[in-house]
Write a protein that binds this DNA or RNA. Structure first.
Lengths: 223, 223
DNA sequence: CCTACCGATCGGTAGG
DNA sequence: CCTACCGATCGGTAGG
């Protein structure tokens, strides 16, 4: 968090161009820890193990992070930042809805939800979130906010669809919950029951099922 | 697993009636461990802590269970036995469907699913299952079987409902997945995100939402 | 069911 | 970023 890299640049020269694209030790720690935590969970992983993966000795980790908990905190900043990015680009939903067919919009929506898991770092972080949720208050807060935002977005979308008479009348909040539950359940299945890092992806395993969920939803709500 | 209670009955007399209703130490260990594992997870709980809750010393636990893992294994036998019980009493689904209204049957189905969580021991065991699923193969096996059985049961139910022309035509497997996802998601929310032992219950927190889910489902499928 | 004990490992610190 | 080290705690055993 502070004075990153001061140890390695104490000669005070400007870094060469090549070095700018190299990962800092701090970044390498985060990447290694994300990887190993995603595989075996936070508690089961020791600081020695992380340092070995990075290629340094255990006490050197404490130069970059004050504690094991701080490493986890840093890892969790990533999805929070990514959620803010997605949130800020949310513009013109109504124009989008009236500019395409119901089928097209729903397919686009499904794609957005699936894309969330496509980036490898995000996928590993989501795994950590699901595994550690039961006893980590920061993760609970993040996941709650993530779910609430998703419900509210789709409540708004379905409300607009009704306004434009694209779909039959429903309680939009309830419809959002029904629609999104399918994804929550798929996440539970993927991240807790069947997680095998680097051998598969959410899209590959659930893509077809999600297409069918989209078709099912359209068939039910379409006016 | 073997020779239970031999230490305490080495005088070879028949146990008094009163003793028959008393819990054996082995049972008390299971109950205490279930309680504490449900609260804080398997790895975070020490054998000392369990023994303290029971009122014995740590090494005495090893008279009843060969290892900490064996305690968990014993705890997991409970839901497996309960599932077998429920499975074996599954008779006359078709008569049931044709003997009541769609609304009545769906309300009864929702009740069965919610009842699964009402028994305190089952609730705690379900919490342990959700918390430890990510790294415990036996739990994965159990949960997979539980989910598959649920999907298959509802696939059969919806197939029979179509045969009796109570509901519109659907792919019954897909309809089962859509219907059950709502519960899977509610479990995820309850057991991982909002679990507060002894202060609430699944029925209390999700009863209303599930009634609305049942009504939503009926409104969509009813012929 | 207990006392006494063990090796292993953990997160973290001191001091350079 | 390293060597050397620490106190605490863990699951489990020996022997009664």
């Amino acid at each position: 968090m502070t004075k990153e890299g001061t140890y390695m640049t104490e000669d005070n020269r400007l870094p060469a161009l090549e070095e700018l694209s190299e990962k800092t030790t701090k970044e390498r720690i985060i990447e290694a820890a994300t990887d190993i935590f995603a595989q075996r969970g936070f508690d089961a992983v020791s600081m020695s193990e992380i340092s070995e993966a990075v290629g340094i000795k255990k006490p050197s980790l404490y130069y970059h992070f004050a504690s094991k908990d701080k490493i986890l905190e840093n890892i969790l900043e990533y999805p929070i930042e990514r959620m803010k990015q997605v949130g800020s680009q949310e513009v013109g939903t109504e124009e989008l809805i009236s500019s395409m067919s119901l089928e097209e919009f729903m397919a686009m929506g499904a794609d957005l939800i699936v894309n969330w898991t496509e980036e490898p770092r995000m996928e590993k972080t989501l795994r950590i979130i699901f595994v550690e949720m039961y006893h980590n208050d920061k993760i609970k807060e993040f996941y709650s906010a993530f779910i609430d935002l998703t419900y509210s977005s789709w409540e708004m979308i379905f409300t607009l669809m009704m306004k434009h008479e694209l779909i039959k009348p429903f309680d939009p909040r309830m419809l959002a919950k029904e629609y999104i539950s399918f994804y929550g359940n798929a996440y539970l299945d993927y991240f807790l029951l069947r997680y095998r890092p680097n051998t598969s992806s959410f899209r590959k395993e659930y893509g077809d099922l999600i297409d069918r969920h989209t078709a099912f939803t359209v068939s039910i709500i379409k006016k």
